[in-house]
Design a protein around this nucleic acid. Sequence first.
DNA 1: ACTAATCTAATCATGCCCCGCATGATTAGCGCATTAGT
Length: 231
Amino acid sequence: MSPQEEERRMFPSFVFPESFLADASTPDSGGEQKKAGRQRRRRKARQSSAAGESAGGDDAARKRKLSDEQAQFLEMSFREDRKLETPRKEKLAAELGLDTKQVAVWFQNRRARYKSKLIEEEFSKLRAAHDAVVVHNCHLEAELLRLKERLAETEEEQSKAMAAAARAGGGGSSPSSSSFSTVTHHAAMVEQFGMEDAGPDLTYMSEYAYNNYLMDLEGSGYLGGAYNQFS
DNA sequence: ACTAATCTAATCATGCCCCGCATGATTAGCGCATTAGT
């Protein structure tokens, strides 16, 4: 089995199954029954062992801590391959002076702990990625707010400026004095700023007044680079 | 198809140090675990 296949088997999906997210403290009734049965059997086993082998005969049942050297050796072996075939198990047991059963159990536990560590690491990574996305989203929303405020300010200034310009040049020129370019600019302004129904009708502004008005806007920074698009 | 070996997941038990953590050991598997050899 390839390492990838093995990984998939041990950790089949990076999307955690529902069972993983489910509340482990509320097992179903079948689980409760199984657990109760298990506990009964354990109690019984303990009682019989205490009754029959009290004179040190239960030594084998006691938990035997592996020596540092044994644990280190098993760890090295685990790093080489997380699966344990029979020949390897027997060889390890012989080399370390352990029971094959102990070696098998050690590998089982080591795999279980390796997997839970893997899940923990994956969870940390996902959480970090999630947090980063949340922060980025906040920045984007703040930026959007700033842009909306700036747009509103600009529109207000435009209205004021156009009203002032209309008052200054209003009635002084006839419709015939407005050039074609002025009309074109007006259309572009309407498209750019959507101010068709706000402010004066620039169609009837003299070209001179219109150019002064644009220069004023450009000079005060209201247009930004927008003026260049008109000329 | 049958069987033995092995697996995962959950849990218990124990040792180390003072209560919780690390780790060795046990158990079930319920549409009755899966896999590999015969």
